[in-house]
Each structure stands twice: as C-alpha cells, then as structure tokens.
Design a protein around this nucleic acid. Structure first.
Length: 278
DNA sequence: TTTACTGTTCACCA
DNA sequence: GTGGTGAACAGTAA
C-alpha cells in the first residue's frame, strides 16, 4: 500500500518516538509475519536493546538497534506501523507489539498479512529481505537520465512496468508511477525503448520531484498519525491521475482514461500523455 | 455474490 | 533470454 513517500513519512513520525527507547517486551500474535529469523531468535535479539535510529530503503523501513541488529519492515499492501500509548485500544489484525520502556508501544498491524518483518545484523550479508536487489534511491544524484537509459533504454516493456521495477529505481509503486508519467507527459503504455533522450531527462527529473513533493504534502504530526491509526498516512492525497478515471485532467480538462498495464490499473490523460504509437 | 485492490514473487506460456 | 498473464498470499469494501 504505502510507497516511498508514505514510508518516508512514517520514518519521520516514528523516529523521534522510538529513538533511545528500550524494548522491554515483544508480543507476537502472528509468528508468520516474522520472516527471519525464528520467533524465538527474533525475541532474544530484540528484547533489552535500544532503538538508535531509523532509516528507509525503497519501501522498506529500517529500525536500528543498539546491538547492531536491524529490524527491517515491508508493509506490502495493507501494513500499518505506529506508536501508541499502552492503553490504546488494540486494532484488529495487530500481529506484533514492541513494548517500550516509557510505556508506549510500537505496533505492527496488517489486515491482509502480506507485510513482513526481518531481523538482520548490520554486518551480516543480507539476502533475506530483498533489499540487496533494490536499485538506486530516486533521490540519488546518480539516478539520472543516463542511468535510466542504461538500465531501461533497450527494454521493450512498457515504461510503466519499468518504473515499477524495484531493481532499477526503488520505491515507486502503482500510484506514483501513474503520477510521475502524467507529470512527465509520457503515456504509461509506451515501450521503454521508444522514449527519446529528452523524455528520459524529463522522467528522471520528475521522479524525484513528484516523490519529494508528496513527502512534503504527507507531513503530519504524530497525533494526526495516531488519530488515523497509521492508515491515514497521506495528509492531503492530491493525486493528478491515480483513481481519477473518467474525471477531468487538471491540466487540460480531457477525461482521464484507465487501462491495465502489467496487470495493474493505470490512469492517464490521453491528451497530455501522447499515445503508444508515438 | 462478485470484483477490485497502493506489493512482490513465481509458474507457465508464447 | 524476453515479455505477458495469472495465481498466490488474505481480507475488506464497493
């Protein structure tokens, strides 16, 4: 569900809430969400340690611990992560609770149970989480037109499917691929190898610009985040095309269209985003 | 009752 | 090898 801007938003909200807090207890309702290692080892290595900070890589959220272990979380479709007071009503589908030494709790909630937690060591070669397969961060200066051309320029797949490829650029999902392509004026169904050099340049700029803008728009206080139960992690969803099928394009007024690309629902403006033939 | 769904991986087929 | 499709994971909501 959450893509890079939302995961970054969560990181910014949670980090001050967990930093320097000690984990006093780990409650696991659904052991299957702990992908690695086993529940017992997970518990042993986590309880008694202190959060030293947080990070993000693509759509993964990272919690650094004082014993150099890293709790790695991917929320997939419906995962939620939030800090609550001790006595806060427990949401249905709460699977893991980290109890903290100030009485608050870090809770992992996931309706569909696709989300996963891993515990790895900072210096361990991580082949469990999938992070080692990720491509560049969108804000990496090296994530420029030349990089995109080198990685994708010869692919015959649609540019939309290419943007969703986490091994090239990490963190873009179905919503922001549509938003980025609309802002770039590129039709989602265009084969990647049909893009001009100028279009790759626009796309490279737009990827970071759109994600950056959305991170800023998502900004909210911890109280607002808690009030939304960790589900309302988009403060002002101001999507230009996503979910706006048959509504007017904000740029030109043309009715937006929807098509399935790579098995994913895709919205675009037939006027602003010239067709596949071009 | 049926369908779609913001993620990822894998099997299968052309 | 490349690319496309559909299923699987599991639950909710329209």
């Amino acid at each position: 569900m959450p893509e890079l801007p939302e995961v970054e938003t969560m990181k910014r909200i949670l980090e001050p809430q967990v930093r320097e807090r000690k984990i006093t207890e780990l409650v696991v309702h659904r052991p299957e969400v702990l992908a690695h290692p086993t529940q017992v080892l997970f518990q042993d290595r986590v309880v008694g340690t202190v959060f030293t900070g947080m990070g993000r890589r693509g759509k993964y959220l990272l919690f650094y611990l004082s014993n150099h272990a890293v709790i790695t979380l991917h929320l997939r479709m419906t995962g939620q992560i939030l800090v609550t007071p001790q006595d806060f009503p427990e949401e249905k589908h709460t699977h893991v609770i980290f109890k903290l030494d100030n009485g608050s709790e870090l809770r992992f909630i996931d309706t569909r149970r696709f989300g996963r937690l891993w515990l790895i060591n900072e210096n361990e070669k991580d082949t469990f989480t999938g992070i080692h397969k990720l491509g560049l961060e969108p804000f990496d200066p090296e994530c420029n037109a030349d990089y995109l051309i080198q990685a994708l320029g010869k692919r015959r797949k649609t540019v939309k499917v290419c943007l969703l490829d986490q091994t090239v650029v990490a963190g873009i999902g179905n919503i922001y691929s549509d938003e980025i392509l609309h802002a770039s004026k590129i039709h989602p169904g265009r084969p990647a190898n049909s893009l001009t050099y100028e279009e790759w340049c626009v796309l490279a700029e737009t990827i970071s610009a759109v994600l950056e803008t959305m991170i800023e728009k998502n900004h909210m206080t911890p109280d607002e985040y808690l009030a939304g139960l960790g589900k309302a992690y988009r403060n002002t969803p101001s999507f230009q095309v996503y979910g706006r099928k048959e509504q007017a394009c904000f740029s030109c007024g043309t009715l937006l269209e929807r098509m399935v690309i790579g098995g994913r629902s895709s919205c675009y403006c037939p006027e602003c985003q010239p067709g596949e033939a071009q």
